[in-house]
Design a binder for these strands. Structure first.
Lengths: 136, 136
DNA sequence: ACCAATACCTATCGGTTTGATGTATTTGGG
DNA sequence: CCCAAATACATCAAACCGATAGGTATTGGT
C-alpha cells in the first residue's frame, strides 16, 4: 500500500537521548514528581524533563509514553483527553495512590543516593577490613 | 524433612537481595570504588557493599561475579589467584584504565544525582543550572 | 506543496539485575 | 566423626527497563 517512497521513514530529529545509565526507575520518579506539581501531557513531560534537569536527563518518548500508560494502569495516574486548538492532548495528573508512590520512591531514592554518595566519599577513612567475625 | 535430599540441592540462605530499583550501572561504580581503595576478592566485595552501604545496597553474587569478569575483560580490573589456607581466592585490583573509568562514572553519577535531587526539591521555583562558571 | 515541529503510539533489541542453582572447601557444633 | 553452615567460586533463565527506531496525524511556516 505504501508508495515506493520512504514515506514512513520520516527522517526526524531522532528521539535518541543517550542517557548514561544509572537510571533504573528514575523516569518513573521524575514523571511522578513533575506531575505532582501540575497536570501535563506526554510530549510536554518529555521536554520538561530535559529542561528541568539542565539537559542532564533526557528520556525519550519511547520511554515516557509507555511509562505513563503503565502508571495509569496501576492507578497512580489518571488521564483526560483535552481538545486544544482542533487537536487533542492527553493530560495526566497524579492520583492519591500516585502521591503515595511518589513519596515512597522519593524517599527510597534519597536513601540510595546518600548511600552511594557515602561510598564515593568514603576515601581512605572508614576503611574497615571485612574481618569482622560474626559474634553471635 | 526428608534426609534424602539430592546432594546438590543445598537449601541455602538464598542470595536474594531485593534491591529497590534505581540501580542500573551502580554495581559497576561501587565495585570500582571499593577496589580502588584496596584489592579484594569477589565474595568479600559482595559483603563489603552491604556493610559500607549500611545495608541499603545488596548486590548478590550473581550480579558481582559476572561484573568482575566483564570489567576484567575490558581491562579495567586485573585478577590474581591467591592461595589462602589451602583454598584459593581470586583477588581483583583496579588498573589504570579502571581508575579512569571510575573517575568518569563517579562524575557522571554526581551530575545525575544532583540533577534528580534538584528536581525532587524543585518545588515551583525553577532551578536554573549554574554551569556558567568558567575560569579565565 | 513541503517541511519541521507537535503529539500521540508501539515494537523490538540489548543490557542488567534478580534469583536459583551448581560445585567445592573449610570451619564449628554435637 | 559427621553434618550443617559459611565461604568462595561460578553460570544460567527470566524479568525488567530503557534506548532506539518506527508509525501516524495535525498544525504552521515558507
Amino acid at each position: 500500500m505504501a508508495y515506493l517512497e520512504p514515506i514512513g521513514s520520516v527522517r526526524r530529529m531522532s528521539t535518541r537521548r543517550t542517557n548514561p545509565d544509572f537510571l533504573n526507575g528514575v523516569p518513573e520518579l521524575v514523571v511522578l514528581e513533575l506531575l505532582s506539581r501540575r497536570a501535563m501531557y506526554g510530549y510536554e513531560i518529555v521536554q520538561a524533563i530535559q529542561e528541568q534537569s539542565g539537559g542532564v536527563l533526557g528520556f525519550g518518548e519511547g520511554c515516557v509514553y509507555p511509562l505513563l500508560h503503565k502508571l495509569e494502569e496501576r492507578g497512580q495516574l489518571a488521564s483526560q483527553r483535552v481538545a486544544f486548538g482542533g487537536r487533542s492532548r492527553v493530560v495526566y495528573r497524579v492520583t492519591t495512590p500516585g502521591k503515595s508512590r511518589l513519596a515512597e520512591t522519593a524517599t527510597e531514592w534519597r536513601r540510595i543516593a546518600a548511600s552511594i554518595q557515602g561510598i564515593l566519599q568514603g576515601g581512605d577513612h572508614a576503611l574497615v577490613p571485612v574481618h569482622e567475625r560474626k559474634a553471635g
